[in-house]
Design a protein around this nucleic acid. Structure first.
Lengths: 266, 266
DNA sequence: ACAGCGGAGATTGTATACAGGACGGAAGTT
DNA sequence: AACTTCCGTCCTGTATACAATCTCCGCTGT
C-alpha cells in the first residue's frame, strides 16, 4: 500500500476527483471557475493575496465578465472572500478551521445517518449502498487506479447515505460544507494512503461503514448518528498524522492555503 | 398579546427584520438584491416562475449587470435555482423542506451549544448572552415595538450562542441554513404571537433559553446540544399550529413559495 | 388530429467602454 | 524627520452592444 517511492501528490487524476464541479463546463464562466479553483488548490496564490481581474483575463483567456462570475462563486464556496472596499482575496485557513470543518461534516453526516434510519421504508432501499460497501471491501488498494476507484466509491457511499435521508435540505447543507477542499470525505483518503499505518486506517474506516449500515438497517437512529460522527473524526485523526509530514500534507488539496500558527492545535 | 384585530402580516418593519442583509447597501447590486428578495418573500412571483432579466431592469431601476449578480446571489441563498438551459426561476418549497430546514438549524445550533459548553473558558464570557436573556425575560410583548425588540433580542441570543462556540466554520454553516426565509430563528416568532396559545409558547421558549445557558455554563455539552435541538423543534411545532390558519401562515416570510401537496406532512 | 419542422422573437452569455473611487507615491509643510 | 496633502494610476462597479442559443408559435405533412 504505502508506495513511498514516488509521492506524486499533484497527480491531476487524483486532485480532479476531489474538485467537485457543480457547474456547466461548456461555458466561459464555468471553465474559468474550474481553472481558477484548480490554481487556488494547487497553491498558485498566497493566502490573503488580492486577486485582480485584469491579470486573470490574460491567465484564464476569458473576458472580465465570466471572471467576475467565477470569483463570486468561489467566494460563495469559501475559497475567496470579498474585501470591503471591493474585489476578492484568497482566504486563509488555520488548523482549527479545518478541524471544525471536518467536525461540521461529521455532524451533518450524522444527521443524515439518523434520518436515514428514521425514514427507512423498505430495507431494499439499502441495496445500492450495500453494493458500494462490498465493492470497497474487495478493493485491493495496490495500484493508482484502485485508489482512484476507492475514492470514487467512498464519495458515492457518503452521497448514498445522504440520499437515504430523503432530505433535499440536508443534502444542500452537506454539499455546502463539502465545498471546502479539505472537508470532503475523500480529502484525507489519498494522504492517508501515504501514512505508515495506512492499512489499519482503511480497516477501521471499513468497519465504521459496516456499523453505520447495520445501524441504519435496524433503524437505530442515535447509533447511526454517533457512528457517522465518529467516522468523520477518523478523518480528523488522519489530519493529525498527516501534519507531521510536510511532504504528505502537500497531498491534501488546498494545503497551501493553511496558515500554521505557533499553537499546533486548539 | 394576541391582538387579533388587525393582522398586519405585511408590516414592513417586521419583515425587514427577518431579511438578513449580508451585503453592501450602497451599491446597485446590493440594492437590487435586497429589493428582489423582498419581492420574492412578499410573493410577487409564483414558485417555478422564470425570472427574466429585462423586465427586472424596468422594475428595479438598474442595469442588467447588477441584476445578474443579484440573481446569482439569491440562487446561492436558495430562493432561486438556475435552470439548465440558462437563467433562473423561483424555487418552490414544500412543507417537508421547511420541516427539514428547521431541523437542520436545530442540529447546527445544537452543535454550537455543545461546542460552546466544551470550549467555554471563563464564565464571564457568558455575561453578554445572560444580559440578552434577561432583557427578553422582561420584555412585555404587548406592543408592536416590543415585538420587534423581542425578535431582535432573539436573533442576537442565537447569534451569541454561535459566538460562544468560537468556530467561524460553524457560524458560516449556520448562516447558510438561516438564509432560507422560514428557517431563521425569528421566522416563526411573529406568526407565533398570533396563535391562541402564544403566551404559553413564549414561556416555553424562555425556559429553553434558560436551560441552554445553564447547560453551557456547567459545561454539559450533550445536554446543551439536546436542548438547542429541542428549542428548534419548538419552531416546528409553531409551524404545525400556524398551518391551520391561512391568515396567520401568510405572516411567515416566503409563505407564498410553499406548495401544499395533498399529504399534509410527511 | 397529431407529430415534426422551421423561423422569428426573445433571452441569456460574453465582451467592452466608461465612470467613480481606492490606493500609493511624491512633494510640501511643520 | 515625520506627517499631511495632493495627484496620478490602477481597479472595480456599472452600463450597454453583440452574438449565440433557446423558446415558442405557426405551418405542413402524414
Amino acid at each position: 500500500m504505502n508506495s513511498g517511492a514516488q509521492l506524486d501528490c499533484s497527480a491531476p487524476s487524483v486532485h480532479r476527483k476531489i474538485c467537485i464541479q457543480m457547474t456547466d463546463v461548456d461555458s466561459q464562466s464555468g471553465r474559468a471557475m474550474l481553472k481558477l479553483r484548480e490554481l487556488l488548490l494547487r497553491g498558485d496564490f498566497h493566502p490573503g493575496e488580492r486577486l485582480s481581474e485584469l491579470p486573470l483575463v490574460a491567465r484564464l483567456g476569458v473576458s472580465r465578465t465570466p471572471i467576475r462570475l467565477a470569483l463570486q462563486r468561489l467566494a460563495h464556496e469559501g475559497l475567496l472572500e470579498m474585501v470591503p472596499s471591493g474585489g476578492f482575496q484568497v482566504r486563509e485557513f488555520n488548523l482549527t478551521d479545518i478541524w471544525d470543518a471536518i467536525e461540521m461534516r461529521g455532524v451533518l453526516e450524522g444527521t443524515a445517518a439518523r434520518l436515514a434510519a428514521e425514514r427507512l421504508g423498505d430495507p431494499v432501499e439499502m441495496r445500492a449502498i450495500r453494493d458500494l460497501q462490498q465493492q470497497m471491501d474487495t478493493t485491493t488498494l495496490d495500484t493508482a487506479e484502485s485508489f482512484a476507484s476507492y475514492m470514487d466509491l467512498n464519495e458515492a457511499f457518503h452521497a448514498a447515505v445522504g440520499d437515504l435521508a430523503k432530505s433535499p435540505m440536508l443534502i444542500r447543507s452537506l454539499a455546502y460544507v463539502k465545498t471546502l477542499p479539505f472537508a470532503a470525505p475523500s480529502a484525507m483518503v489519498y494522504a492517508r494512503s501515504k501514512l505508515p499505518k495506512a492499512a489499519a486506517l482503511f480497516i477501521i474506516g471499513q468497519e465504521q461503514h459496516h456499523g453505520l449500515l447495520e445501524a441504519i438497517e435496524q433503524r437505530q437512529g442515535s447509533r447511526a448518528e454517533a457512528l457517522a460522527r465518529e467516522h468523520a473524526r477518523l478523518a480528523r485523526r488522519n489530519l493529525e498524522s498527516v501534519l507531521s509530514d510536510q511532504a504528505i500534507l502537500s497531498c491534501v488539496p488546498g494545503a497551501s492555503l493553511i496558515k500554521f500558527s505557533r499553537a499546533a492545535r486548539q
